[in-house]
Amino acid sequence: MTGPLRFGVVLITEDCSRAEWMTKCRRAEALGYDVIAVPDHLNLLSPFPSAMLAAEATERAAIGTYVLNAAFHHPVLLARDVTTTDRLIGGRLELGLGTGYVRSEFAALGLPDDPASRTRRLEELVGALDPLLAGKGPPLMIGGHGDRVLRLAARRAEIVSFTGAPYRAEYGRTALVDAAELLRRVEFVRAVAGPRAARIELNVLSKATVLTGDRRAGAETVRRYAPDLPPERLLELPTLFVGTPAQIAEQVRGHRERFGLSYFTVMEPAMADFGKVIELLR
């Protein structure tokens, strides 16, 4: 499905007051974001209380989780949190799930953190949630990059989110793939989804936005996200935005045409800059 453009922002907060959090959420909505999302990390604010307050602070934006770590949540308890939150915020919740990736968090909880175990936990959680949320759950987003996660997303989620960033042993961390590989990931999802592909919304998580009149120089400032890619290939990525607001708006339109992406999510540091792009796309 290539529907209307939507824009989300993930708010990343270790500590703040009620007033500070509400101000931040109101600013996101005023900048034109359609979805205000909260992450799920042990050092950050807890996702569901944060989501509740985000909804209280705003009027129209959907409130998302980007993304809950499947290993952290028992399905019965999670179903209770999801249905309660969605009801109390007037049906504005968007439920995002993923495998998690921060090794220290798995260690802190005594959980296995190998990729197979993390993916299995996500598959089990989605399977268990299905009957618990049947007919009363919010839209489901599943985010990831590998075959197993994207296969699950293609078969079960209303929204598939592409991170475009597998773990790279040579760097000891995740790194972005090039545009051709990301397109192959999109085509993989469409093939697995079959007839339901037309109903799936495709999302991408952007790592950074750099406003500049010199795109090539701007690309050099984000090389850390994909150290093996030359500037011209960095500038093709829908996971990075580099240029003037007008140039980035054209990138968004181009990514929609090439990849079928209609839902773009940025991280909080890019919120104000990408807000200038949203203004041009409305």
Results as ranks from 00 to 15, higher is better:
278 I>M: 05
176 L>Y: 03
73 H>M: 05
153 A>Q: 05
277 V>C: 00
67 V>T: 10
47 P>E: 08
209 T>Y: 02
241 F>L: 01
218 G>N: 00
124 E>W: 03
62 A>Q: 09
66 Y>A: 14
224 R>I: 07
116 A>C: 02
113 D>C: 11
276 K>M: 03
33 Y>P: 11
239 T>H: 01
4 P>W: 02
164 G>I: 12
155 R>T: 15
245 P>E: 01
132 L>S: 14
241 F>C: 05
181 E>W: 10
156 R>N: 09
170 E>S: 11
1 M>H: 14
238 P>I: 06
148 R>I: 09
55 A>D: 07
11 L>C: 04
46 S>F: 13
7 F>E: 04
220 E>I: 09
172 G>N: 00
209 T>L: 11
25 C>H: 07
80 R>G: 10
182 L>I: 00
93 L>I: 02
257 E>N: 10
86 D>V: 00
259 F>A: 12
202 L>V: 15
171 Y>D: 00
215 R>L: 03
270 A>R: 08
238 P>N: 07
110 G>M: 01
267 M>S: 06
282 R>P: 04
203 N>S: 15
216 R>F: 11
120 R>T: 02
146 G>D: 08
189 V>W: 00
243 G>N: 03
6 R>A: 13
159 I>W: 13
217 A>R: 01
269 P>M: 01
37 A>V: 01
181 E>H: 14
86 D>Y: 03
91 G>E: 08
45 L>I: 07
49 P>R: 10
189 V>G: 11
148 R>G: 02
258 R>K: 13
215 R>N: 07
137 G>T: 12
267 M>P: 00
105 E>N: 08
5 L>M: 11
214 D>F: 01
149 V>I: 13
139 P>L: 12
198 A>I: 15
29 E>R: 07
57 A>Q: 13
199 R>I: 13
26 R>F: 06
42 L>P: 06
93 L>P: 06
6 R>Y: 03
134 A>N: 13
261 L>I: 15
245 P>H: 02
95 L>M: 08
111 L>P: 02
257 E>D: 15
119 T>L: 13
214 D>P: 02
198 A>R: 15
216 R>A: 13
95 L>Y: 11
122 L>T: 09
112 P>K: 08
270 A>G: 05
107 A>N: 10
113 D>N: 09
265 T>D: 12
274 F>E: 10
120 R>H: 11
264 F>A: 09
25 C>P: 04
204 V>R: 02
33 Y>D: 07
73 H>P: 04
103 R>D: 15
194 G>A: 09
112 P>Q: 06
147 D>V: 14
106 F>A: 14
163 T>K: 10
90 G>V: 02
93 L>W: 08
188 F>V: 01
202 L>H: 11
202 L>A: 13
251 Q>T: 01
40 D>W: 01
47 P>M: 09
75 P>C: 06
142 I>H: 03
71 A>R: 00
120 R>S: 07
16 C>G: 15
98 G>K: 11
65 T>V: 09
124 E>F: 04
279 E>D: 10
228 D>K: 15
214 D>S: 04
260 G>Q: 04
40 D>Y: 00
140 L>G: 07
123 E>R: 14
85 T>Y: 10
101 Y>R: 14
13 T>V: 14
122 L>H: 01
5 L>F: 08
58 T>R: 04
101 Y>C: 11
212 T>I: 03
212 T>P: 00
81 D>R: 15
47 P>V: 03
219 A>G: 03
140 L>N: 10
1 M>K: 12
269 P>E: 03
